[in-house]
Design a protein around this nucleic acid. Sequence first.
RNA 1: UGACCCAUGGUGUAAUGGUAACACUCCGGUUUUUGGUACCGUCAUUCUAGGUUCGAGUCCUAGUGGGUCAACCA
Length: 558
Amino acid sequence: MAEERKESLNFIEQIIEEDIKSGRNNGKILTRFPPEPNGYLHIGHAKAICINFETALKYGGSTNLRFDDTNPTTEDTEYVESIQEDIRWLGFVWKGEPLYASDYFGQLYDFAVKLIKKGLAYVDDSTPEEIANMKGTPSEPGKDSPYKSRSVDENLELFERMKNGEFEDGSRVLRANVNMASPNMLMRDPIIYRIKKEHHHRTGDVWCIYPMYDFAHGQSDSIEGITHSLCSLEFIHHRPLYDWFIEKLEIFPSRQKEFARMNVEYMITSKRKLLKLVNDGLVNGWDDPRMPTISGMRRRGYPAQAIRVFCDKAGVAKRENTIEINLLEACVREELNKTAIRAMVVLDPVKVIITNYPEDKTEDLTADNNPEDPNAGNRVLTFGRELYIEREDFMENAPPKYFRMTTGADVRLKNAYILHCTGVDKDAEDNIQTIYATYYADSKSGEDVSGIKPKGTLHWVSATDALSCEIRMYDRLFTVPDPTFDENIDFLEFYNNESLKILNHAKMESSLKNSMPGTQYQFLRQGYFCTDADSTPGHIVFNRTVGLKESFSKEVRK
RNA sequence: UGACCCAUGGUGUAAUGGUAACACUCCGGUUUUUGGUACCGUCAUUCUAGGUUCGAGUCCUAGUGGGUCAACCA
């Protein structure tokens, strides 16, 4: 008998379930993701994408992708492509072809004419300054424009002439006739059409007037039959206007519901600030692995599934929130632990010579590709007399709980033998040059009869077989969780100069020689890494996605 | 001197008038040929004051605190 588990719903799902129960729209659910094609998608968009697509999916509905391209000045086809790529990469499928608000310019124009005929819109000849001055302030009502009382016929004629290009940019606008005394600034006769004699990325030079957001978004929702228009909280003041247009135009009643957008520690989503990072060369482009862009996270090695799980776990509500970066990293590790191929790479190598191992001998050893996944198979490692281990895995005068290599002690080499450290060579500056050890021939992995149980296990590579590679160690972009917490301090003050450290002397096991860009690995005891697109056949580059959880370093800090 | 939205552990999110829970973090432990994983455990929560009610995190009022709104941007 299945235990009945009460599943908790977020407030949007509750609304939808009530709608379904009451038979609204015959239970049909259609959402939309409406990006403006004027920039790259970031973590905040990922959240909006997840909410819109997953909510629809959950209730057997679907989601439209609609480009909100009503401002020809800022928009470009370049972004139309990257946005689609990012959504697909996240694993979502929109309904049919991508849609464009610009496809509705004709209908939108007709809607405006309808409004004029109902006496609900008028052409205003005021200058932008005059309009701003008449707008009032949040605590003072606005004043009616002297043009508000124009006749329907005159408005009709002027609006048509605006469309025909008879007037200069900025000389006239079409405004909705709502209420200049409304406490809601957006209801104070909002501008709904402006003159812009500019080339549009899709409609070319057909139009020289373009609708504003408020006169395009809701109507586009309505035209498409969107049932639930899910957007972030800052649009809440637009809702009365959204509803007003639908009511006056007598069109399909889409409804807007607002959720709080998601903030994440150490990430910023301001387009202006991200652009600043790019322009100042503090990151290497929009897809730099430190960037909170979807393309950046992809290059960093964050799996799409991890980002989706993260957005789910962050939840949906209406209060301001900042999600800890810990949660994102936990989701990334959880996913990668299941899927990433294991490999051994020594980031900061120091040589070990096994003095009782024959000089000309090598052995093939087998290693699991992923202990979490029996189907991942295994691979061959070459073992020999000379190896590299991690410099930090050796300590001459080790503290009691140090389980790694130290003189006189035993330590296991992963998938290989147990070593007994016998001594070291140092240079004039006291730096360790070479570590000497003996091995226990009967301690081979899988057939160990030595009876020795070392506390620690180290990763290693064969000195003769290993290949050099480049490792890019990425860390958080900022030194504080919220670099914008004080508007008087430039956020670049908190740029983390150590957000990227390049290691040029790392040694990788030879199985990684032909690694393809995008492949994700767990480098044993180091973290998760992925092959970067900058890799060439003779020079493999790895990005550190995220480190492993590390309890030893915490121990040391005590 | 306006309107609107919000307030639950460190961080998020549930609890839909009836025992405040889940995840992540932190801390501790067991297992481990990754100081990883897995598993177990500990600490810790309803902004304040009134009111309604047998009973309030939930409903009402006021206060406090936070956020948002005055682009021919979206």
